[in-house]
């Protein structure tokens, strides 16, 4: 019965705890690395592309690949933020908070190792939302989903676009679909605080406010850095402050975590700072980045680019060569067989 090694709580055995926790400096390192390798790759491919274009004809003026202002890591992050906010404010389909939160986390995890120069965040956003609806047990038919998208953006998206991106997204997340959000933890504090205060209507308001803050926290780096329970407690504390209630939340924290409340307070302060200083990415900013992105997108991923046309032609030629080779060997064998009977 007694196991030899110490058991860990359920949360600490989750993939989120084991694989998706980073410090802010680690995050920055990963992002700059991803960005640098993407820029190097795109530059190489664009040079190839422009060489191909010169042999054909020049239809639209494009700057040479060396002079293109490539996106930096911060710009990539900002555009991602913009689309994450779009998920959060997704108007159709009545998705619950968990679905949207999961989709946002998927997007964050995806762009940790991928660049928006390879995959445009618009398609990834839709794929993540569709995937999140599935993993959070809120399944929506692909046709209904596409109808909603079309109604909102007046843009027709084929189902293949979403299906084609499901695998790269899943792979980049290492197929770790389970995400723990602060929402449930916040509800837990709402319940536990009932031991601490008698004013239940106020507590309810605090809880509802904290949910708003959790929504904001999803648009920051906090989900990578802190635990859901920590974020939940910070949002509750922030809500008590902003609602100007008389609830002594610091007293509650002190009484609940007597030996660790100092460290915990530091964490909560940091989260609070991030949340209060949060400012969403404006549409103009996003447009500006998108305009830049237009010139430095990976031509391999664009089916109309000269490079991907060439790749396709190469593949086709290779297939034909293989086919003729196979036919030739078949014919040789046939001849050999026939020569036996002559």
């Amino acid at each position: 019965m007694s196991s030899k090694k110490a058991k860990k709580p359920l949360y600490e055995q989750s993939t989120q705890f084991r694989h998706w926790r980073f410090s802010s400096s680690q995050l920055e390192n990963i992002r700059t690395q991803t960005n640098a390798s993407a820029v190097e790759r795109v530059k190489r491919l664009l040079t190839e592309e422009s060489a191909l274009r010169e042999t054909e004809q020049t239809d639209s003026p494009r700057p040479p690949p060396e002079e293109i202002p490539y996106l930096i890591a911060d710009e990539e992050l900002a555009l991602c933020r913009y689309y994450e906010a779009m998920i959060r404010n997704f108007p159709g389909a009545n998705f619950p908070d968990e679905v949207k939160a999961t989709a946002i986390v998927y997007m964050k995890r995806f762009y940790l190792r991928n660049s928006i120069m390879d995959y445009h965040p618009k398609t990834i956003m839709m794929t993540c939302l569709f995937l999140g609806a599935k993993t959070e047990n809120n399944i929506i038919a692909i046709s209904d989903f596409l109808n909603i998208i079309e109604r909102i953006s007046r843009e027709k998206i084929s189902r293949d676009t979403i299906f084609r991106h499901e695998l790269p997204v899943s792979q980049s997340m290492r197929f770790e679909y389970a995400v723990h959000h602060p929402y449930r933890a916040s509800f837990g504090f709402f319940l536990d605080l009932q031991n601490f205060t008698k004013d239940l209507t106020k507590l309810k308001r605090i809880y509802e406010k904290s949910k708003e803050y959790i929504g904001t926290s999803l648009l920051t780096e906090l989900v990578f850095i802190y635990q859901p329970s920590q974020i939940a407690l910070a949002t509750i504390r922030l809500a008590t402050k902003t609602l100007e209630t008389k609830l002594d939340i610091n007293g509650y924290i002190r009484s609940k975590f007597p030996d660790k409340h100092e460290k915990l307070t530091d964490i909560l302060d940091d989260i609070e700072n991030t949340l209060t200083n949060f400012s969403p990415v404006s549409k103009d900013q996003a447009k500006e980045i998108d305009r830049k992105l237009h010139f430095c997108r990976n031509p391999e991923k664009n089916p109309n680019s000269a490079l991907s046309k060439k790749r396709r032609a190469d593949k086709q030629r290779e297939r034909e060569v293989r086919k003729t080779k196979r036919l030739k060997t078949l014919r040789d064998q046939q001849k050999e067989l026939e020569s036996v009977f002559q």
Partner: peptide, 16 residues
């Protein structure tokens, strides 16, 4: 439901 919410609230909270 309540127990699960409470567990979520108190797991990992002291992780630094």
């Amino acid at each position: 439901v309540h127990e699960r919410a409470l567990q979520a609230a108190f797991s990992g909270i002291c992780d630094v």
